[in-house]
Design a protein around this nucleic acid. Structure first.
Lengths: 267, 267
DNA sequence: CCCATTTATCTGTTTATCATACTAACGGTC
DNA sequence: GACCGTTAGTATGATAAACAGATAAATGGG
């Protein structure tokens, strides 16, 4: 059956991962459609995707569009084209899993559980190390940002009646707290990595929450705040080792919470 | 002056970053040429790149090739195209710095110093956290791999007369040791990240070394081995905290060495 | 049954043409 | 002179048709 893509001229506006730059026009629609299908496993690794001409007919676009879409997806390595042999799906291990588009396609395609596990592991490895380094070598400006983020986080936390809007502010304050530590390391690579991680985690949990009408309560919110307080205190004291340990406890706790809510929501 | 690209049919074979998948044909040459120029700062952020038709004339290729090359580069966000406005360089902060191609272009374009600093910071944040996690939760198979890598590293280290070939084996053994810890975390995202980091670091240092006929001595090679031994010992003892501290000492030392040799070689 | 040759197939590349959207210049009105 | 709608110009967006090139499958002779 033909799956003609509609001439939607703004794709990926809402409902997209942060860091994914909007691609307009028919090409954007084709990229999203094909990318999701490919990453979603419609064709097995090693298998050949329908030839360009057939995809043109199916999707109702010209060959140029299909080819340019292929080049965009190929740039992130899920596929590869060879003359006369067609365009084949590459083994998963070769995909650029750190690319926001690939992450976005994985989420859209429903590959959520393994992604969640992986993202949380990255946080567990990354953030304790980041705060260790930040405690030692953060500049005054970065320290000020961290303190500011903590003040805001405390303030939002103490605001009563946490309805939906309040909760979003709570999450935002939490993210800024963690982001501030990452930024203190002054590594563009790390900051970008964390941006992908947090965006993906946010989208994953939001997805599940909105699917259930966000009825689930935040688990261990008081305990979480206490753990954060400990992290901030050790940072202020300048004890990198202790800050590192506190952050690790915090992330471990967050991981348990995330797994719990995810499992609960999946039932 | 026209910069006609030659019909080189295998680009990026040697002299390329690991993880960068070979792009064949004229398109591959165009991507490398344009990517290096753009990332190299030939056009300032916000500035418009020459229009497609002009690039066709300059490089002696058809518009399709230019367009597909743009799509590949745009997929990694250094540029963006808009109807009637042309193709403009995006601000650096939006580039996918974690993408192997972008890293490769940065190296080719000579943007080495800031890249080196950033890569080393990632190692400093990443690896202590990785060994902490690995010490706690590595499976038997992963532990076996780590032990194997250590045995080999020790053996290669004790081999006398470290000529050039021996030295490459030493580096390879060292990499496998670090990679084994990363792999124990069982995170595809982290493993890919480390693959990019190590490939880039290797290329950066190799580049400088071969430029000077690799005459420079490995700095602090005995001390380095001792630090590695400490890391492995704490891992075997199962003391995650101590292993973490040992790894941090090791990386800090490696960073000093890297900076020293880089500075020395740059003179 | 094996190996060389041919044939079919699909991507690689070029060229041409029109659509579309943005910019800026123009010109008229108040 | 300032404001605003129109218009012309320019670059990318998209389609179409055709041929070249490389690989794999089918073919045929030994």
């Amino acid at each position: 059956m033909p799956t003609i893509i509609k001439p939607v001229f703004v794709i990926r506006k809402s409902n997209a991962l942060a860091g994914v730059i909007e691609v307009r026009g028919i090409l954007g629609a084709a990229v999203t459609e094909l990318g999701t299908r490919i990453v979603g496993g419609v064709w097995a690794p090693g298998e050949a995707i329908p030839k360009e001409a057939d995809l043109c007919d199916d999707m109702g676009v010209s060959r140029s569009v299909i080819r340019e879409a292929f080049r965009i997806i190929e740039a992130k390595d899920p596929i590869g084209s060879r003359t006369s042999d067609g365009t084949r799906v590459r083994p998963r291990s070769e995909w650029q899993l750190l690319d926001p588009d690939v992450v976005d396609w994985r989420i859209k395609a429903g590959d959520t559980l393994s992604l969640l596990h992986d993202l949380l592991k990255v946080r567990l490895v990354l953030e304790p190390g980041a705060i260790h380094t930040a405690t030692i070598m953060a500049c005054d400006q970065a320290r000020a940002r961290i303190r500011r983020s903590w003040v805001i986080k405390e303030h939002v936390y103490r605001t009563p009646d946490p309805d939906y809007a309040e909760r979003r502010r709570l999450i935002a304050a939490d993210l800024e707290f963690h982001r501030a530590f990452l930024a203190a390391v002054e590594s563009d690579l790390l900051s970008q990595l964390f941006a992908v991680i947090e965006a993906a985690l946010g989208l994953l949990l939001d997805l599940k929450m909105s699917a259930r009408g966000h009825t689930t309560q935040m688990i261990g919110i008081e305990e979480s705040q206490e753990l954060h307080a400990a992290v901030f205190a050790e940072f202020e004291r300048g004890d990198a080792e202790a800050a590192h340990r506190a952050m690790r406890r915090l992330i471990e706790r967050a991981i348990r919470d995330a797994h719990d809510s995810f499992r609960q929501l999946s039932e």
